[in-house]
Write a protein that binds this DNA or RNA. Structure first.
Lengths: 311, 311
DNA sequence: TAAAAATACTCCATAGGTATTTTAT
DNA sequence: ATAAAATACCTATGGAGTATTTTTA
């Protein structure tokens, strides 16, 4: 015979009632089958759990020991069933979210995570930072649920790219650079495209993919301007590190001003330069995980009518 | 439907095999009933545990969460069954033992407990100190398994009183007492019965029961000697405290020399005085607890041919 | 002797088996 | 086209019900 939870439930009822007949009534079964099940359990365990006397059944010493064990296991399964009920509702589970460096820099990110944590405390958030290409790939592979990134790279079928906002792009220059002499705001602050002529430019590489930097180069080419590309890096953070070190200038989404705020000068681009940085939320259209739906809804409602000006 | 351990066992097999058919083979059942049981479980929990695809079944995210829970519970029941197997063998359990103060003073007591602990590490010893009357009563009431005491008080049916040893009785006197001037050993060390004439005597009270002190008084009466009983106390420890304080003299089992060794003088009784203190082990004859049997056996074999001279 | 548990026996619910269909790649 | 899971249906184990006997204080 294999032991089943039924045996534990029956045992517990008898132990608590101290009475086979009363326990049977409480369990909505008759006395004889209960008697048999208890006997089968005793037989399985190889110990007498009860001492039978004229007016009921009392736990033996082995029975007392078993009572503790049985209670522990039944409590444990009850907790499990409650947890799974919350999993079924979607309010418990795990949610894996990734960000590109520049997406993580946008204030929207921590804001929305804090909101989510508060609303769904039983959903364990697994956060990571990675390149846009890896994030996209891992979402398609069900390794991640959601991703925040700038310009979509590759468009695997079944993935939704939802543009949450578009924000201006700023020129980042070393503090001792010519462009850093411009005022921070006002008409004269703006950097024109011709300012890029022969300028040392640091780009974030995107193996053949369109992106902020490809767009910038296209604009330059359109107007016959030739910047001097001195470095191609993987991450936007490296980008700014090099600018801070004086290796050249670059462009970054406005929200990256927070990064290297004291060691890099940020200036706006001229009105005529139509270059902006989107922030996209990526997820699988067919993701059945309730948590993903909750997260997408929360992000969407948080950014509704938000053009990113706050960042 | 009520969830049973069977569901967890089946789920675990499928999760580990990643394959319904293979899991069924491993469980020695056919594939269709396994399919049904898994479906019933999913239905009960309200979540999909597996994603079905052409070559097997893969856990969903809820399934992964459930896997942890199911493993925990099955491990827990396995541990329980192992523990109960040891309970069945008698090598696991609880054993409640009590001592009177003077029985606890005998070196046999710690020696036998240390031995038992080493041989049955999974039997939890519950030790207590109490009067002989209470110990006897609580053993009869199944509150205790074994007791160590001196002279049996009351003889409830079903209790076995096994005399382990008999040891000499010593006279205990204050350090500045006349009897304390006697040499510690040799012929002149012995205290005669006439030395008790008009002496302040402290007794351990035994509501009408025979005991060491009743025997002493009987001996005195026999020879026409009248000691002056100045105090009747509950415990032998109180007894010695009063002797140490100079309130009078008393008699105690030889093994009590350890107690108040520096503050009380101990002298032997004369050869003609047939007064000795037994050490008894008490237990229920019908005690079915294996641990009790083990303990009684251990105590018996430890004291075989031992007349208490070592203490 | 009275109350409760155990036994004997029957019944039926359902776990499990057999045959076939459906599904997914 | 093929491997695997689901469905349909049947079988039979054993859990549960009914009637009665045995046990225990």
């Amino acid at each position: 015979m294999d032991m089943e939870l039924r045996h534990l439930r029956y045992f517990l009822a008898v132990a608590e009632a101290g009475h086979l007949t009363r326990a049977a009534a409480r369990l909505n079964i008759q006395q004889p089958p209960l008697s048999q099940q208890i006997k089968a359990l005793e037989n399985h365990l190889g110990v007498a759990l009860f001492r039978r006397h004229a007016k009921g059944m009392a736990l033996t010493e082995s029975g007392e020991l078993f009572l503790e064990e049985a209670r522990r296991i039944l409590d444990s399964t009850a907790v499990m069933e409650q947890r799974m009920a919350r999993v079924a509702q979607g309010v418990r589970g795990r949610l894996a979210i990734a960000f590109t460096t520049s997406a993580a820099a946008h204030l929207l990110t921590p804001r929305v995570l804090r909101l989510f944590r508060g609303r769904y405390p039983e959903i364990e958030l697994s956060l990571s930072e990675n390149s846009a290409a890896e994030i996209t790939e891992r979402i398609a592979a069900r390794d991640l649920h959601c991703g925040f990134l700038r310009v979509p790279v590759g468009r695997p079928p079944g993935l939704v790219f939802r543009t949450l906002l578009k924000e201006p792009v700023l020129v980042a220059a070393p503090l001792d650079h010519r462009l850093a002499q411009k005022p921070r705001t006002g008409k004269n602050a703006a950097v024109a495209l011709k300012d890029f002529q022969d300028e040392n430019l640091i780009l974030v590489r995107r193996a053949g993919a369109p992106g902020l930097y490809a767009n910038l180069l296209a604009l330059c080419a359109e107007r016959g301007i030739c910047p001097n590309v001195v470095a191609e890096v993987e991450r936007m953070m490296t980008n700014l590190n090099l600018v801070a070190a004086g290796a050249g200038i670059s462009v970054v989404p406005a929200s990256m001003q927070q990064v290297h705020a004291k060691t890099v000068a940020y200036r706006p681009l001229g009105k005529s330069i139509h270059l902006n940085a989107p922030l996209n939320l990526v997820y699988r259209a067919a993701d059945e995980t309730a948590a993903t739906g909750f997260f997408v809804d929360l992000v969407t409602s948080t950014t509704a009518g938000d053009d990113g000006a706050r960042s």
